[in-house]
Design a protein around this nucleic acid. Sequence first.
DNA 1: GGATAGCTGTTACC
DNA 2: ACCGGTAACAGCTATCC
Length: 824
Amino acid sequence: MKLKFIPIDYDYFDFEGRNYAKITGRDDKGKRICVIDSCEIYLWAILKEDLSQKKIEAIIKKISKIKLDIKGRQTKVEKVEFHDKNFLSHPVKALKIYATNYKDLHDIADKLGMKEIVKRRGYDLGFTTHYIIEKQLNPMEWYEISGELLNDSNKYGGIDKSIDVDICLELEGIKKIDKFEFTPKVLAYDIETDELQIGKGEILMVSLVSSDGFKKVISWKKSQESGQKQDYVEYVKNEPELIEAFVKYVKKISPDFLIGYFSDGFDMPYLKLRADHNKIKLSLGLDDSQPRISRGIMTSSKIKGIVHIDILKFIKTAYSQYMQSETLSLNDVANEFLGKSKKPFKHKHSSKLNGKDWAEYYEYNLHDSILTLGLFEKILPDLLEFTRIIKDPVFDVSRNGMSKNVESYILHKLGEFNEIPEKQANDKDIAERRSKERYEGGFVLEPKPGLYENIVMFDFTSSYGSVIVTYNLSKSTLLEKPSENAYTIKIKDKEVYFSKKPGFVPEILKDILEKRRKYKKELKSAKEQEETIKRARSNAFKLLANAYYGYLGFFGARYYSYEAAAATAAFARKAIKDVIRMIEKAEYDVIYSDTDSIAFARGKKNESEIETFLISLNSNLPGIMELELEGFFKRGIWVTKRSGIFGAKKKYALIDKKGNLRIRGFETVRRDWCNLARETQNKVIKYILEDGNEEKALKYVKNIIWKLKKREITKEELIIRSQLRKSLSEYKAISPHVIAARRMKEKKIPIGQGNLIEYYIAETREKKKLVREGVKLPEEPGEYDIKYYLEKQILPAVENIFQVFNINIMEIIEGKKQTTLGDF
DNA sequence: GGATAGCTGTTACC
DNA sequence: ACCGGTAACAGCTATCC
């Protein structure tokens, strides 16, 4: 039979010693399809150079005879072929050694210890990746497939009976077809519990919200007094019934995606532990299997046939660097992405909740799932496009770090270069790479502190990516010896050389950059219905390009190259310094530069003259290096460091013609300063940049300080937030936020690594020696410490800004203080 | 016992 | 452990006299 098919989830099973891929997805009518397929299984043995034909034939014969007996399973090498391949850009002679089961490849590799074989590769990709590469049945793309219907057959041990799908097919033919819309069925869920520690408390309720309008809260805790029952609430008798009802509804709705927020780390393991505790099965899988909770630092929960997605993970890797939110809590993220907040609800132990509280609790619980679903729908185009580009299953793409995504992208492209894949780093490699000395990174020009007018900002488009492509930097293009025909650069007093013959790693990046440029351009002229997808595509390639350099220097990377990473930074330093020189030569006043950007005053030149200047600059740049105009700014300020007279790097503020501020590095943008200090500084910067003088700003600060001294500032404005970045016991230095965290622990408030700790500094009876002596939690009563907030928050935040106008704000304020309070 | 250099720790920039 | 280096700064800690 024939049908249109979109693969969503990939799994595999063993039958009679062989591996079979089991792919679930949908057809164009929305029916759930399961496809069974197999592919050739093999690894590569790279041969020593200059082996005679006879020798090679002898080795092939020898390898063909390899038999294995592993845990009672007897298998053998099925066949051996000779191929001309490339490995790390070098032509090699290699043997393709076929086996029956992917798991056997490792053991076969262990038996290839003969001296004629120099390297064994390609047996560590994982079956699913291997399968996708072999069969080109890529996730989230449409195919017309043909095959034999397995419904009610006993083939593969009657697999179709054990799995809840409409059609089960043994795959025969695959034809890619033009993409058309796919709207997945999505179900978001969220649980509420008494204890935050996983499995320790009971699950009080669970909410479910689907993309087709289903809304439900299941609870066994009744709100006795609440008059009108919320129609979406369904009561059950107890916790086990709650879990069973949850499973029942998931099965009934049968979504393609089951979505949670931090559900890998909380909801799903909690459900699993409580199911175990109640001795019931959490059989969510299409084959009734339970979720597989992976152990380790990064836990994940996998359900067979349904893609469980923890959107927090994808948001972290794909968006967080461009986000404004100070935390990645559901509330902050929903606010930024959807403009919606969580429902207000004050958490209490369930024994202390009354009828009305419960009604609010249900509402709160339901709303979390609504927000989670909303967020998922927002990120779905990006996630799907990412999946199509990376070609890993959406389950993995949603959890991978960017480095892993880069690697998968490369692995799926190796075929185009006839390349044998490099192996994964082992523990020894990792230890060695991590012990390497850090190399020099970006160049930062020390600014001359001051207020500047008419500022231009240029920056390199995809700076490091362009460097890698321009100078062909990678593991495989690194040369051992100097060569006339090589790109040469010094890293740490040592010269390194890179071949000019394009290597596949830079070539793949070149293609990524070209695609990025193409899709960005297409986006500008895209029709409305195509806009989302084009934006997603352009965005995905941008992220891939940006992560490529990090990948080269990441110790876990297959194509790790310390030299290539260090050379990338070195060539980029050279490039920006050359540009600084060129701009200075054209008699502009260069103010500041950081890594790939440069700010200078345009003086008497107008904007169009600057644009012409940019074109002339670009004509002098090597390879694909290109500068672009980041923006014109009306005014900008650079300050000194807190100590000394040197210009502070990574701290500046600009204002454009429309009055938009761009603030970098200042306390305003740092979440570990109290709101009052941040807002005061923000206003000061705004007034100064708007008017070009300090009068209004000074007046404003004086007023704030007056209010502070009169205790007219609310405590909320004075709360300091700082993250617990490790477990409480690991801290050597006991800073204020550690004290606050310890106090929270004493009060049985659950805290741990990653929590944002809030506190304020209160007055103490005795004069304090250390700041931490005044630490109080927000809910603890106390008077805020005026002296602390004045001297350690407000004044430091504005001091350097007024210094630009030769105003010593400390003297003005403290001087006043001495005359008024100077009686002791 | 007070001053301070240096370290620990967090957060930002690119 | 799950991308790199550069930088500012606060507050604690060790060490000095």
